[in-house]
Design a protein around this nucleic acid. Structure first.
Lengths: 144, 144
DNA sequence: TTAATAAAAGACAAAAATATCTTTTATTAT
DNA sequence: ATAATAAAAGATATTTTTGTCTTTTATTAA
């Protein structure tokens, strides 16, 4: 469904949200990598990119690391997906046709419209900060 | 959503269904490639594999080519997807967690269960032979 | 039986995705 | 100011996916 990059990105962002909450705590790349069970250097690259796009905040140096400010905590998983994989997953044709459209539909066009819409609305409704409590209670998991 | 391989596979199978219908007509790889606008050698490889798995029939030599027998025409898009991409798209965790489950759910586990189910049932209901008429009438398209 | 045809099989090539390592820059604590 | 820290940036490596070409095998028609 999503690329590896995107899977790691979502897990990392939710993890950072959980660990840093509202405060000005920062979490380092090693803790993130082990916390979501991802390759350290790889997730570093991904967060670098998300940081450049302003989806996550970071500071260098001692006590530095990543965190989410108040507005970033309100971002949705759809925002993360879009930043990483673009919106082809929300818009592209299920059979890879460039010119697939209402007027020129592929055989699964109408079904996919419904499924995509559900996917999109679901991700749009899920804010990064929404999972903290359940993660803390171990009702949800980000690794294994 | 699907791999390129899978996209081509679905398009090719539906195309073969349309062109060969019930009769014992066969359609060659070049016609398939141009009919669905895919790389010729690549779709050849894909159909080779599907042929090995019995999802499509073929004969070599003059007047040879690919076709779908009566039972193959009843196969669903889900069967094609499973043969090509496996069933990770129907079953795997949306965030790539190996041990994601009801007891150990990832943050999007429950939403994804619903979306996946819709996807699966939709593909399961769509039989290869179902699109022929609308393709003939140019209400559906397999290229561009 | 032979030549032509078309898929099967196998080898190879290019591109993209995934993953790792090294150097640089900014920040902080001493 | 200086040393230590941690992310940013850049370079490189590996694997997977996608795409192409060549040779072999089966089938048919002449």
């Amino acid at each position: 469904m999503f690329s590896k990059t995107c899977e790691y990105a979502i897990r990392a962002m939710i993890f950072i949200a959980q660990k840093t909450k509202e405060g000005d705590i920062r979490i380092g790349i090693k803790d993130i990598a082990s916390g979501i069970d991802s390759p350290e250097y790889f997730i570093a690259k991904i967060l670098q990119e998300l940081s450049r796009k302003g989806l996550v905040q970071s500071v260098k140096g001692p006590n530095g690391g990543f965190y989410l400010d108040h507005s970033s905590l309100q971002q949705s998983l759809a925002d993360v997906v879009r930043a990483v994989d673009g919106d082809k997953i929300f818009e592209g044709c299920g059979l890879g046709l460039k010119q697939c459209s209402e007027k020129c539909p592929c055989p699964i066009h109408h079904d996919f419209k419904r499924i995509r819409k559900d996917l999109y609305r679901t991700l749009e409704k899920s804010k990064l900060g929404n999972f903290t409590e359940e993660l803390d209670k171990q009702l949800l998991f980000l690794r294994r």
